[in-house]
């Protein structure tokens, strides 16, 4: 994808720097500026900081057209990211609350995660899509989702070489399915491309980046943050468990909503697939992945439940943002312009 447009003075300066590779770049001034921005803005809703984080993380995935790949491991750039991450993590811990759990067997862990998922009383985007959404709102919903779903499963794959034993086997079993079990064209990200194209949307990764508000970026930045830090391998596992446990029933609602709007297979395949797949994955992620990790090393439990609780909290904020906008008859996008192919 192309480097996105800047959203403030930090992203403006940083994106200018990124256009010409400089191994010894001095970013200390920018770091100071970033802290000043965060003195007055909530990092979860800071357009400037979230687009910066998104770009810094994306260097580890697929990078940007015309941007030197060596930036991925450039020490000053990593230093800037680390400073921003300190604030990001502190805020995530604040909205997640103290990790709440009791140590036990893998089944005990699964039961606690299922309870956390079912206690999640955030606003229900899936119910809204099922019953009320217009085609335009359904398109917006897909645009928000696209920044993760077009690279679905990738942030959790960072954890694979960092795990061993039962937890690793569980993660591999889930990821193998996410990536289409070796069948070309069957990756979940590719099913999502079909859904987007069915609604006249551009299915290229990042096509709608300019339209996505900070909180949507924060939800995917959180996954990259958990995934890229071995210290937080438990958190990306906890995130995956909650993600799977809050998926099969909402996806059945999404499928109903898109059918209500007149769409059918292959547009609805993505949702139908996730009803069946995630009813499997939630069991494996809760018991064998998260539960297996904690059984192997109880000291990881705090990270697992932090990830799980943060996933619930961020998801509630993303959902609230969309429902509030739609409730007022407005677009939930950062820019109300909708790019639709003829």
């Amino acid at each position: 994808m192309e480097l996105p447009e800047d959203r403030g003075r930090i992203s403006e300066s940083l994106f200018e720097v990124l256009r010409t590779y400089d191994p010894d770049v001095d970013l200390s001034g920018l770091e100071h500026e970033a802290f000043k921005v965060l003195d007055s803005e909530d990092i979860l809703h800071s357009e400037d900081i979230q687009i910066v984080l998104f770009v810094l993380y994306e260097l580890h995935y697929r990078g940007f057209d015309g941007i030197d790949a060596r930036w991925e491991w450039n020490p000053p750039l990593l230093g800037l990211r680390a400073k921003i991450e300190e604030q990001f993590e502190a805020r995530l811990r604040q909205i997640a609350g103290d990790p709440s759990f009791s140590l036990g067997s893998a089944q005990d862990t699964a039961r606690q995660l299922f309870a956390l998922a079912s206690a999640d009383d955030g606003p229900s985007v899936s119910t809204y899509i099922s019953r009320h959404a217009t085609v335009e709102q359904a398109r917006e919903f897909l645009m928000h989702k696209s920044i993760y779903q077009l690279k679905e499963a990738d942030p959790h794959s960072w954890a694979i070489p960092r795990l061993t034993g039962r937890g690793k086997s569980a993660l591999m079993e889930i990821q193998f399915d996410e990536y289409g079990a070796g069948r070309p064209g069957a990756m979940h990200s590719e099913l999502f491309e079909t859904t987007m194209r069915g609604l006249g949307l551009d299915s290229e990764f990042g096509a709608y980046i300019e339209s996505l508000p900070a909180i949507t970026l924060a939800s995917v930045n959180m996954m990259s943050f958990f995934g890229l830090h071995r210290r937080l391998r438990g958190s990306i596992a906890g995130h995956l468990a909650i993600y799977e446990m809050t998926s099969s029933i909402p996806n059945a609602r999404y499928a109903r909503g898109f059918r209500r709007l007149g769409f059918d297979s292959p547009v609805t395949d993505y949702f139908d697939e996730h009803v069946e797949a995630d009813a499997v994955h939630e069991q494996i992620a809760g018991r064998d992945l998260a539960g297996g990790l904690i059984e192997q090393d109880p000291s990881i439990a705090e990270a697992v439940f932090f990830g799980a609780q943060a996933a619930c909290a961020i998801d509630a904020l993303v959902g609230a943002h969309q429902l509030e906008a739609w409730g007022r008859g407005r677009s939930s996008l950062r820019q109300p312009k909708v790019k639709v192919e003829a």
Partner: peptide, 13 residues
């Protein structure tokens, strides 16, 4: 489940 013989998560409701 609405997709028997497979599970669709409805047991949670």
């Amino acid at each position: 489940s609405a997709i028997k013989p497979f599970c669709d998560g409805t047991h949670k409701l």
